[in-house]
Design a protein around this nucleic acid. Structure first.
Lengths: 223, 223
DNA sequence: CTTCTCCGATCGAACGTTCGTTCGGCTGGT
DNA sequence: ACCAGCCGAACGAACGTTCGATCGGAGAAG
């Protein structure tokens, strides 16, 4: 409980920076195992992926994994919490300075696809294993997911406030339609084989934005 | 292999129609267990749901489940194969007579949401456990899924052929954007609590169709 | 009509395997 | 001499699956 606190989540730089062994610092090896576990969870699914498989993929013994992590659930929590945190920070960063709501929406979609292309395994685990955590770990990831949701919904909201003067468009439905498109990416899109990230991002952003604005104006035509 | 053939998939009416016991025919009890298993898989996930849990939910013993099904994977296969088959038949039925591509797209989205509302657990299992099967069972479900995909992509194709004269819109991306929205429904939409099925279907159809056509025309403006 | 036989349906109990986790000890740098 | 890092081996629990026994109704035999 107290030992492996939330500090590990961000990546504590105070510990392990002196010496440990020839293959990197404590944090580097922890992150190496975490990255291997991310790939393993993405490949097999969280429940089907055993700790033995995680250990083998990371090149350490089974007990060696437990030297760095309290247990299997803790690994999944760290993967999700870090990924959602990075996703959120990355989005806020790229959103700074952009005022127009429609441009914000484009930036959001591009940022999401860019992060997806750079962290496919992590986002697959985030999309597919949303209910695999429980208790406090689930609550923590739910909170940060909700932050990401609110940020995106507020952008959708501002766009609709400009065009949907009658308020006939459901903000939640509109936002979840976009989330569906983005969270489903891991099922079909491989940036290494399919069209370029920028191409896909542009088409999705164009389609969604035009659809959002157009559907809103269409409903206002018939009062 | 030979014993539990594909016949069970459709529901063989030849057997068990004479007598079995007071609680229904063979097929009725098989379908009852299958329905319970669907709910259990949807609630816990396929890997986490144990056969003991399935048996308890169905009100039979653990060994009793194996009297009707070869094994756990066979249950998942039957759930997915039946659901995809019904989804496909239902769509083809409602599509007959409709010629306009844009209307076809609206019909498709309404049909999907209607089936979702009536079979939430089954579609959740279909969306979430796509990779849980292996071997021949996986291939069989993949084929029927591909049929559904091709049917929808052809509709998208016809819409784009009317407006995207330059062919700048990627048909696969456009189709998967829609599939993402639809397949993500199970994560957030509850017809019993949220807005009505017709309302959500109309908004999603409007948004997507306007976006598809609008984005295509927008790209043709700048040659 | 009664009796016997048989077989499908069902169950409790157990099988072997794999799971997440723990523990005691080895090792190499300080 | 010490201690963090790491490992082989083992733990109990839970898993999917199998097996042998039991039960009851349908049909054949008397």
């Amino acid at each position: 409980m107290e030992k492996q606190s939330i500090e590990h989540t961000i990546g504590h730089e105070a510990a392990g920076d002196v010496t440990l062994d020839g293959r990197g610092t404590y944090d580097e090896r922890l992150n190496h195992i975490l990255a291997s576990a991310t790939d393993t969870f993405a490949r097999l699914g969280y429940e089907k992926a055993s700790m033995r498989e995680v250990a083998k993929a990371a090149g350490v013994s089974l007990a060696g994994v437990y030297h760095y992590f309290d247990g299997k659930e803790r690994i999944l929590f760290l993967i999700q919490f870090r990924a959602f945190g990075s996703l959120l920070n990355n989005l806020r960063e790229k959103l700074s300075g952009v005022e127009d709501a429609k441009k914000q929406l484009c930036v959001m979609i591009r940022a999401h696809l860019g992060y997806f292309a750079a962290n496919m395994s992590a986002l697959k685990v985030c999309s597919h294993e949303l209910d695999s955590l429980s208790g406090a770990a689930y609550e923590d990831t739910r909170k940060i997911r909700h932050e990401y949701y609110e940020l995106c919904r507020d952008i959708v909201d501002r766009v609709l406030n400009e065009y949907d003067v009658n308020g006939t468009m459901d903000r939640h439905v509109a936002t979840m339609a976009l989330f569906g498109t983005l969270n489903w990416l891991y099922r079909w899109y491989d940036p290494k084989r399919g069209p370029a990230v920028s191409t896909v991002a542009r088409q999705i952003a164009d389609q969604y934005l035009v659809g959002l604005v157009g559907a809103a104006m269409k409903q206002n035509e018939t009062p």
